[in-house]
Design a protein around this nucleic acid. Structure first.
Lengths: 155, 155
DNA sequence: GTGTATTTTGCAATTTTATTTCATTTTTGA
DNA sequence: TCAAAAATGAAATAAAATTGCAAAATACAC
């Protein structure tokens, strides 16, 4: 993968906010023809710079979503245990995000469920059932102040 | 906004994973014609069920991104101060996510920067410069185990 | 139940967008 | 400076999205 140039950055800048803009419009904005834009986009997808193209759904319309931030502390630092735990978090649909972090706790999770009953069941499945886990702390989100995926382009 | 039916759910299920699938393909998968799918998608966008359509970029290709989970504790619960702080977090591009949570801390932030220098500058801007903030705790993410936005559809 | 109004649908036609082809220009590296 | 490789735009083609319209399905009042 060769390094990205200014034009790639501009394309990414536009598409990470709205990937339904036409190639013609992108081209016009950055001074390229539509086919040139198209080739760049194809390459960005093939090389994995663009990882995925998705619609973001407002979960409010699916019910009453509850977002919970969970801090997880492990008993051990054993790689096997850590990796197993990561895999389990990864495979759980309600786990929207998972970070393996430095400091007092080991994992930070962003979890989304529709009922507290569902969350309670989930804690059993994920935490109480996993002897590697020492303790966990849940904080309910009262407001999702920001939820974005747009990275600033380096200058 | 009338409630979503099974077909809407299926459309959303597909599009939140890949919004470049053609309407014909969606239609085939769920037993509808392409125009019927198109009208539903238009409506889902207009009513805000689909909030945004984006490309997800792998920030590795932009440099060496550093993800930091920050817990922020406020001095006060005054609504004005809280709202000002929210607004500031919202407007900061490096703040990818911000949750206003219950518990010991008030905010959980997911921040992405390219250098520690940039982070240091950011902490001054966001925290040290804001008298409403009592303390903050940063945890560096060693591994983004999962980073998704796909909500399970209620049955 | 019955009939009417409203909504949703599929088909066909149209428009817009994406993709391919190919000759030319630009860039890269010896 | 020159040859090879890569990237580009114009034109042509292919694919996808969108619109118009008549028919079917659904909802609703009676």
């Amino acid at each position: 993968m060769q390094p990205l140039d200014k034009l790639d950055h501009k394309i990414l800048e536009m598409m990470q906010v709205n990937n339904t803009v036409s190639q013609r419009d992108i081209g016009e904005a950055i001074g390229l023809s539509a086919p040139a834009v198209q080739r760049r986009i194809t390459r960005l997808r093939e090389t994995g710079v663009i990882r995925q193209d998705i619609s973001i759904i407002d979960p409010e319309y699916l019910g009453s979503p509850i977002t919970i931030v969970v801090q997880v502390e492990m008993e051990t630092d054993k790689v096997t245990i850590i990796n197993e735990t990561k895999e389990r978090f990864r495979k759980t649909p309600q786990v929207q995000q998972c970070y393996y972090v430095t400091g007092e706790v080991d994992f930070m999770l962003i979890i989304m469920v529709f009922t507290m009953k569902e969350y309670e069941a989930l804690t059993h499945e994920l935490f109480f059932n996993n002897p590697g886990i020492k303790r966990f702390k849940s904080s309910i989100s009262m407001d999702i102040v920001k939820y974005g995926l747009a990275f600033p382009m380096p200058k």
